[in-house]
Simulated scan of single mutants.
Amino acid sequence: MKKMGRGKLEIKKIENKTNRQVTFSKRRNGIMKKAQELTVLCDAKVSLLMISSTHKLYHFLSPGVSLKKMYDEYQKIKGVDLWLKHWEEMQEEQRRMVELNNMLRTEISRRLGGDLEGLTLAELRGLQQEMDEAITEIRNRKYNVIKNQTGTTRKKVKNLEERHGDLLMDLEAKFGGAQFGTGDGEQGNYDSASMYGNEGAAANLFALSLHPY
C-alpha cells in the first residue's frame, strides 16, 4: 500500500479504460516535468521513453543528447554491447540467404543441363524423374489449352451454321417455299428465281441453295 495525500491508493491496474487513460496522461506529464528538472538543476543526461497501452510513444531527451549517444554511453559504462547479438543474428540470416540463393541457382542450372558432374547415379535418376514429371504436366496443360481453343472454335462454327440456317428459313418464308433450280432441265424454275432480282443478291443466293442435287 502506498500513501497518496490523505488517503491510500492500492497500486494495481486500473480496469476502467477511461480512468486508465486519464491517469496515464496526468502521470506522464509529471514524469516529463521531473526529467526536465533533473536536466536543468543537476546537469544530468536524461533519456525517457514511454509507450502507452494504446501503443503511442512518448519520449524526452536532454538538450544536445541523442538516443544513440545515450545507448553508447550506457554500453561504455556497463561494459556491454547491446548491438552485438543483433549484428550476429543479421550475419547469420545473411549467410542463410546466400546459401539458399546458391542452392536455387544450382537447381535451375541442373534443370537446364548444367552442373551435373558432381551428381551420383541415384541423383541423376531422381533429376530425370523430376524432369519427366514436369514434361508430363506441361503436355497435359498444353492439351487442355488446345482442347479449350478447339471447343471455342467449334462453338463459333455452330453459331455461324445456326445463323445460316435462320437466314435460309427467313428467305424460304419470304418466297413462299418455291423450289428453284439451275440445271438445264429446270430452266423455267431458274427463270422464275430471276424474276426476284429486284430483291437483291440474297434472293438469288437463296434460289441456288435450294437447287436439288
Rank of each mutant, 00 (worst) to 15 (best):
G181V: 09
G113M: 03
T150K: 14
M195S: 04
Q128V: 04
T150F: 14
E107N: 06
G177M: 03
M103T: 11
Y196C: 02
T152C: 07
F175W: 06
D166W: 07
L119I: 05
F180H: 10
A203I: 05
L100P: 07
E99K: 15
L124D: 03
E172H: 08
N140F: 11
G113V: 06
A203F: 10
N144L: 13
L167Y: 11
G118A: 14
T120S: 15
V145F: 14
T182F: 14
S109P: 00
Y196M: 04
G181R: 06
Q187V: 14
S194P: 00
N102L: 15
D184G: 01
G126H: 05
G165P: 06
A178V: 13
D170K: 11
R110Y: 00
G181F: 08
Q187I: 08
L121M: 07
G113N: 05
G200K: 11
R154V: 10
E107A: 12
A202W: 15
G114L: 09
R141K: 07
T106F: 08
L160F: 04
E137M: 15
A173V: 00
Y190P: 00
M195H: 02
R110H: 00
M195E: 08
G185M: 09
E162Y: 08
R141S: 07
S192E: 12
K142S: 12
R141H: 09
N204A: 06
M103G: 08
G176M: 03
L168R: 14
S109L: 02
N140M: 14
R105I: 10
L112R: 01
K174A: 02
N144P: 01
E161F: 01
I108R: 03
V157F: 03
G165W: 15
R154L: 14
F180K: 13
A134F: 07
E161R: 03
A173Y: 03
T153C: 05
A193T: 06
Q187M: 07
H164Q: 14
D115C: 11
R141L: 08
L100N: 13
I135G: 01
L167G: 03
G188S: 09
M103K: 15
T182M: 13
Q149M: 11
G118E: 15
M195A: 04
G185N: 08
G118P: 09
T153S: 05
L104T: 06
Q187E: 13
A193H: 10
N144E: 12
R139Y: 12
G165T: 12
G151C: 07
T106C: 10
K155S: 13
A173P: 00
I138G: 08
L119Y: 03
G151M: 10
A134Y: 05
F180Y: 15
G126W: 02
T153H: 04
G183A: 11
Y190G: 05
I146F: 15
L112N: 05
D166C: 01
N159R: 08
E137D: 11
A193R: 11
G181Y: 07
H164K: 12
V157M: 02
N148A: 13
